[in-house]
């Protein structure tokens, strides 16, 4: 359902491992940032259940020191526009 983007602050020395972990999750796309200390994560899920499951998976990753939500678009916004 929603599309969201985050700045991900990895735990010290765990950036590469974290990138692999995130990339392996369904609905996750990892983009390297110009700022080498952080990663950009874009998530796309279909349905509340999927979104909740993804959140639960992210919460379990120890290599994430801090996740900062930057942008979020609801399904409504996406479809509303496409249906015009």
């Amino acid at each position: 359902m929603p599309i969201k983007s985050y700045i991900v602050f990895p735990s010290k020395g765990k950036k590469d491992l974290l990138r692999q972990q995130l990339a392996s999750l369904a609905g996750c796309e990892v983009i390297p940032a110009l700022n080498k200390d952080v990663l950009i994560l874009v998530t796309e899920t279909f349905g509340n259940h999927e979104e909740d499951a993804l959140m639960a998976s992210l919460e379990k990753i120890k290599e994430i020191e801090h996740l900062s939500l930057v942008s979020g678009y609801s399904d409504h916004a996406i479809h509303d526009h496409n249906n015009k």
């Binding site: 969201k4 983007s5 796309e29 940032a33 110009l34 950009i40 930057v70 678009y73």
Partner: peptide, 11 residues
């Protein structure tokens, strides 16, 4: 757009 927002915010 979401990715760009995050990249800019990181910057």
């Amino acid at each position: 757009t979401a990715a760009f927002s995050a990249m800019a915010a990181a910057a």
